[in-house]
Design a protein around this nucleic acid. Structure first.
Lengths: 99, 99
DNA sequence: TGTATATTTGTCAAATATTGTCAAGTCAAA
DNA sequence: TTTGACTTGACAATATTTGACAAATATACA
């Protein structure tokens, strides 16, 4: 998801992985893994990527987070049940947060 | 969410934290934190808890995971957008997983 | 009040997980 | 067959999470 998006963006700009990873001050092996989805980027990298590749930061962050969420729940049988519990209880969660 | 559930279950059985934590072979300070929601239990502990407190294991696991998901996304503005992305792409995610 | 027991909190060390680096690998184009 | 881009795997460096312990607070009750 996130991986595909940044690859698209990079290719649209005709940039090499090497160039992007240099701009992010990151080993290109690591960038490669991120772009292939076998490593998850850090939040700060997502933000830099959005800027660098002229992507929509908010959107990229959402896909990046979605990947992390999936990562967390993938082992569960009924992923949707879990997502629904979260969704239905957001307000409640926020309340408890204040304590 | 998960925290409240296990507290309920424990109180229903008239057990002390000390007793539950002993049965789980866990420091009771740690169990206390879990029951208050300031620490997240390990999966194995959730399973043992379900058994010990006569709770529904599957349900407890779902609430436990929901907490973890919320933990992950709470900083994001539109949590529901993120959850929807996951939900809508589960099939797609599973496909990519195979590679 | 004073004592005993239960729960909660803070801090630090140990365990685990994540992120980054390096060297070696594949692949395609020239 | 050399070159450049990308990929992979193993390991090192960091960061995060979990657990242990001591001390603080709360609750019950003689």
């Amino acid at each position: 998801m996130f991986a595909e998006k940044i690859r698209q963006l990079r290719e649209n700009k005709h940039l090499l992985q090497r160039q992007v990873s240099a701009a992010l001050d990151m080993d290109n092996a690591l960038y490669c893994k991120i772009e292939r989805g076998d490593r998850i980027a850090k939040r700060e990298h997502v933000i830099k990527l959005a800027e660098l590749l002229d992507g929509n930061e908010e959107e990229l962050l959402k896909y990046w987070l979605a990947d992390k969420v999936y990562d967390l729940v993938q082992s569960e049988e009924n992923v949707n049940d879990v997502l629904n519990i979260v969704s239905e209880n957001i307000v409640e969660y926020k309340k408890n947060k204040l304590l």
